[in-house]
């Protein structure tokens, strides 16, 4: 076992522990827990058996296993980035709604106090 494999295994062990903790704290859904568990187990498989990705790559018509990993990682990163952008946009809209309600409420309070 080379040093990288050992370090990666320890890290994935820690990551899976975090996933389980998040699930217990009900911060992660069943699907989310399943996805991240599978992700880290699969990552361990790839790190311990690097040739396994080559088999998969060849099946897809890609030469090297490392290339498949890079393509998939890029696709996932872009997808997550897009989802984060959309989420941020929605949060911005919620902030605006709160700011608007507060602004109109304050104005109405001031108006009613002036009338008194």
């Amino acid at each position: 076992m080379i040093i990288f494999q050992l370090l990666f295994f320890l890290f994935s062990f820690f990551a899976i522990g975090t996933v389980i903790k998040r699930r217990k704290d009900t911060l992660l859904s069943n699907n989310g827990t399943l996805f991240w568990m599978l992700f880290w187990i699969l990552a361990d498989v790839v790190v311990f058996m690097p040739n396994s990705t080559t088999v998969f790559a060849n099946a897809l018509g890609i030469g090297r296993g490392a290339d498949v990993i890079i393509y998939i990682a890029l696709a996932i990163i872009f997808f997550v980035l897009f989802r984060l952008h959309v989420k941020l946009h929605m949060i911005e809209q919620h902030i605006t709604r709160i700011v608007r309600d507060d602004a109109i409420g304050t104005m109405q309070d001031t108006e009613s106090q002036t009338k008194k």
Partner: peptide, 22 residues
Amino acid sequence: AFVIRHGLNRGQGAALETGHVY
């Protein structure tokens, strides 16, 4: 003028819609 004040800067579209609500 009547004035409604946003506590945070939210942009021109947000300000116009606040005016619409009023």
